[in-house]
Design a protein around this nucleic acid. Structure first.
Lengths: 349, 349
DNA sequence: CTGAAAGCGCTTACAG
DNA sequence: CTGAAAGCGCTTACAG
């Protein structure tokens, strides 16, 4: 690299062309590996590219070719291990396909989400992967994203009526089936008084999990008391604070299917505070299998969502969509697997 | 939005200009909020922008203005909670400043790092935040990033001689001081046989932490046995497997300062397997304060690196650099704080 | 206050 | 096999 290169001004095709006495078109052909260029010319150009430390300006190329080389990824909260793994999976296949990931995080706020989408879309991503914030609305998303950029929805439904123009792909977890498995596991251990703990009913994933729980209870002929459904924010802290509500009436539950692992960990904390011993006199299941789940005491029985694999899958689906924009919208429901860590789920005494 | 807009072709300034009988220049002025445009003209243009569902093409604008609206972020492993938090912090201030984050993850491989940097740099980020992979080399990084794009190094030094042209900003943790604090804490509890466990000595952060440990031991007049230094990969799994080496000779250690939390958690697992009881007959400290640290049994005494705050700080530093490219390179060493969770560190029996 | 023209760094038919 | 010209969607002096 020429260390005397004028700092600040970047080297362009024109500099390379001038440097070895060919046209800009020829340099462009060399860059793109065209077989039309003579071997010797190619060698001269390549030497000059190295000498001047040329950096390809992909934005200019994209403008001219009307292509894109980026995929936008918008998640609720990047620091949440579930989404961090998901993002890592997305970036893995996006990068391998020669694209770059544009990142955005919404802090679970529909307003931030609108702002983030608006900003990202101006950068012309080829497609967009969105894990919607709670309360995010389909009409608004369509208005800022437009119908020209393929969108893949992950994890949650959007609120509101889905507009005609929005034929979006969807990748979701099988929440209902997962929660049903967890509930059946507790039923098989002899529990009948099983609560469904945590999450907000205005989140579609929460409603689905709750439905799976109810289905299992119904199938087993187990009655469901109203105070066994306790709503709370899907965080450890709020979950711990809401534990008393579970025991506000009789009969008290002996087990709980939790909305997710964070809530389950908070529940266990709260139970201890109340004088219970999770894993001895109370059974708990989670959802997600975050890293802490296996480490908690007792280790947590939960459902493996495999977020990294889901990230890879989401990116894959979006890339396929880019290749075939006309294909029918896909709706993939990924199964989740129960991982039994016996110590969090004692049989009914 | 005009729902009859030709799908595929995007709306441009030209369409808006034609749609309301002004020139493209005027539309451009409206978009950028210029006071030169007459109120009525502005209103007409804005209505037309909405009607046609115009999306600003920032790449084209950047090309013309020779500006950038993105910051590239390259981390070792996005799924690592430490870096996930860091990335969330970066994205927070990058987004607030009107930039977009380009993401790359290197899987701790210098080869992947080169590929990722090469790809990102072609997208013309205004600046770059790099948390180098272990073994990453300064000369190579400079060769692919060039001297024109400001780079901020986070967390680790680069290997090799730092080239003249590379006046990069640095944000690092005070590894030495942190490990020294942890060691002093153990010494104060009466321990004298203290190991330094985990990490590889070819990582600069590991060398610094080791140095802090040695400094504290020396200052206390405590001898250091060779077999108290056990290297292993900075993962829970490898740490657990390497525990026997600690007890391969006498005197056996009664405490260990660990390279990081993952290693500390692995150590505790391995100790249990060996018939020890961490928190009763063995004291352990970590580094990072990942989410699992507080939840482990026993909860882990560790050093708080506050990665999200570090992310915000890194982005802030880089943005300041963009505003003042000429300023002298900065080197910020962020302090880390000891958080004592007594149960992981019993006093010497 | 508004418009015509040039140009950012590329690519792509089209001649030669 | 190579070059001249036009154009991707913007912005920015410069006239008027």
């Amino acid at each position: 690299m020429d260390t005397n290169a004028p700092l600040g001004r970047k080297v362009t095709l024109r500099d390379i062309a001038a440097g070895c006495g060919v046209s800009r078109a020829t340099v462009s052909l060399v860059l793109r590996g065209s077989p039309l260029v003579h071997k010797d010319t190619r060698a001269r150009v390549e030497a000059e590219l190295r000498r001047q430390g040329y950096v390809y300006n992909r934005a200019a190329a994209n403008l001219r070719r009307r292509t894109s080389s980026s995929i936008a990824l918008v998640v609720n909260e990047l620091a949440n291990p579930f989404f961090a793994e998901f993002a890592a999976g997305v970036d893995e296949v996006v990068g391998a396909a020669g694209f770059v990931t544009l990142l955005g995080s919404t802090s679970e706020s529909p307003r931030r989400e609108q702002a983030v989408l608006g900003s990202l879309i101006e950068h012309g991503p080829g497609g967009l992967i969105l894990s919607p914030a709670e309360g995010s609305d389909a009409v608004q998303v369509l208005a800022t994203v437009g119908a020209a950029t393929p969108l893949l929805l992950f994890n949650r439904e959007l609120g509101g009526e889905l507009p005609e123009a929005a034929h979006w792909d969807v990748l979701a977890l099988d929440n209902q089936q997962g929660a049903r498995q967890a509930t059946e596991h507790l039923l098989a251990l002899g529990h009948r008084h099983i609560a469904f703990f945590g999450g907000h009913d205005d989140s579609s994933s929460c409603r689905q999990r709750h439905a799976g729980y109810l289905a299992a209870m119904r199938a087993a002929g187990a009655a469901v008391a109203a105070h066994w459904r306790v709503e709370c924010a899907p965080t450890r802290l709020d979950a711990a604070a809401c534990v008393p509500a579970l025991f506000a009436a009789v009969p008290a539950p002996t087990a709980a299917v939790c909305y997710n692992d964070a809530v389950a960990l908070g529940l266990m904390q709260g139970l201890t505070r109340q004088g219970h011993t999770p894993g001895r006199d109370f059974a708990v299941t989670g959802f997600d299998d975050i890293a802490e789940a296996a480490l908690a005491s007792p280790p947590l029985t939960t459902l493996v969502a495999a977020p990294r694999a889901r990230g890879r899958q989401a990116a894959q689906m979006l890339l396929e969509r880019l290749r075939d924009p006309g294909a029918a919208a896909r709706r993939v429901i990924a199964p989740v697997q129960l991982v039994v860590r016996a110590s969090s789920c004692p049989p009914l005494a």
